[in-house]
Write a protein that binds this DNA or RNA. Structure first.
Lengths: 180, 180
DNA sequence: TGTACCATGTAATGGGTTACATGATTCA
DNA sequence: TGAATCATGTAACCCATTACATGGTACA
């Protein structure tokens, strides 16, 4: 495993960044499919530096503040490229507390189950609306060799995922109502 | 957190089981939304026993083999029921190595990207076929108060999820072809 | 001058996987 | 009698989160 490593290398393959920038990227551009806290990123950058896959230069911001501006090394690019071309076996199905709850919901009254389903649907509907807003920021489909095109594809994936969740939850609600 | 605890309590709320049975259940009925290895389950059962939420009786199978047959206690039922009725905040988006890879795929040749997308589509298509087989085992929709109805709902969820994945991957493949 | 944000780290803890370790039962 | 499966556990390690800890910069 050790996928975080490649997330970082992939970002640095595009441009020089600080640990803080990488942390920001996890909260924004990578948000839909990866995440990491700064407490994980800084140690990882340290070990990548020791492994010779990245390097840094100190930059002074303002008067005193030292920023470490990281860049990828040729060895790092090589490692990233190998990973990028490899077909990785999917890890098991993601854990989902809501589905676990629903799986055991024959043990609670029907109205309570409907309440849980309704709340879940509301959350996904809201999330879907946000994603549609993000999609509307695109001015047409970017060209395929542009990294904006990748942004576009993963955003489409997030939208289809949320749509499927909403669709499923609506079906469940209908079924519960029809069969009670 | 500590959701595994409730997965176990939920199973024991239905029937008495051994640690091994619980382990099996994780690989089968819970597979679509939860999983745990036996090395995690046995210690958890120990701590649940210490907390008074479950208890066990020794059963002899064959001549010698001692099985621990666990059952839920009233306190355990209480704890499970509280969890079951609570609306839990969803943990962040699940990590997805493929999407990470796709996000960085502007760095590789177009044919390679299409190959990755094709392989991923194939895997999801196969998985979808399996799930449809599982659905066909149902003889109509079970009544809403039956635990088979819960099985049915989570299976529908798994199917919609896979359908969305296939749909998305097909869209990506089309887009890549159209814009190259 | 205060607040939001930029910037970097470590420590403790929890959750989870892999590997180690053992032995009984069932059925062909 | 051998293989698949049932059955229970521990140890080492890895990944990740929360909390601890510090301080500078930009801007209103």
């Amino acid at each position: 495993m050790g996928v975080l490593k490649y997330a970082i290398l992939g970002l640095l393959n595009r441009q020089k960044m600080t640990g803080y920038d990488i942390s920001r990227a996890c909260d924004t551009s990578l948000f839909e499919f990866w995440n990491a806290k700064h407490s994980q990123i800084y140690p990882e950058l340290k070990s990548l530096t020791e492994a010779g896959l990245v390097e840094y230069e100190i930059e002074i911001a303002g008067n005193v503040l030292q920023k470490k501006l990281y860049s990828i090394t040729p060895a790092g690019r090589e490692a990233f490229h190998t990973w990028e071309l490899t077909r990785h076996k999917p890890r098991g199905v993601p854990k989902d507390e809501f589905r676990l709850q629903l799986f055991f919901s024959d043990s609670i009254p029907s109205e309570q189950r409907l309440a849980l389903l309704g709340a879940e649907l509301e959350a996904h509907t809201e999330r879907l609306a946000q994603l549609h807003d993000d999609l509307n920021k695109f001015d047409g489909i970017p060209p395929a060799d542009d990294c904006a095109f990748c942004d576009y594809m993963v955003l489409l994936g997030a939208i289809k995922r949320e749509e499927a969740s909403c669709d499923w939850l609506e079906t469940c609600i209908d079924l519960c109502r029809a069969r009670t």
